[in-house]
């Protein structure tokens, strides 16, 4: 019998409360929209026999979780000091222009979400962005346009 998405992920971690941080990361990936639906958090709470408040605390504490649907690709622009010293704010502006959305928003086609993030350890190639697991650095407007185009084309 095939279980629910939640029960499958939980089984992977032996239904252990201790693995909640990882469980929620996996669930977010399963969602396809880079977020954890409320019903899933409720299911996790029931199946792990943990108060929903505690699951909610974890889900709202860590920056990598989203509780609302995001685009297929979340573009995270680093805004920490090393990237800023290499003019990261111009990256944010270029991306806003390229995608016609503001930071924090998602494109109408549901493909991209733009958001800020703290340093993710790519300061050797700053200014840097992260799309999912992939990191891109030493960026300028042209390189960004190239990257966005590649993601869009990958879609077709």
């Amino acid at each position: 019998m095939k279980g629910t998405v939640v029960s499958e992920v939980l089984t992977k971690y032996d239904n252990s409360k201790d693995r909640l941080v990882q469980i929620l990361l996996d669930l977010q990936e399963e969602s396809g929209q880079n977020y954890i639906p409320r019903e899933w958090l409720e299911e996790v709470s029931q199946k792990l026999d943990t108060p929903l408040t505690k699951v909610y605390d974890v889900a709202t504490f860590y920056a990598m979780y989203n509780l609302d649907p995001k685009g297929r690709y979340v573009i995270e622009v680093c805004k920490s000091a090393p990237c800023r010293s290499r003019k990261a704010e111009t990256l944010a502006q270029s991306l806003e222009k390229l995608l016609s959305i503001k930071m924090g928003e998602t494109t109408a086609d549901g493909l991209f979400t733009l958001q800020h993030t703290s340093c993710f350890g790519a300061c050797d190639i700053s200014p840097a962005i992260k799309i999912g697991e992939k990191v891109y650095g030493n960026l300028n407007e042209d390189k960004l346009a190239e990257i966005i185009r590649a993601y869009r084309e990958g879609q077709k």
Binding site: R38, L41, S45, P51, L52, T53, K54, V55, Y56, D57, T60, F61
Partner: peptide
């Protein structure tokens, strides 16, 4: 949470958004 073991309210979020509240 500890005296009554109910857990209706707890911590959520962080920094200035840190809150003592119910889930959601």
């Amino acid at each position: 949470n500890e005296v009554q073991t109910v857990g209706a309210i707890y911590n959520s979020h962080r920094s200035y958004e840190y809150n003592i509240t119910t889930a959601f």
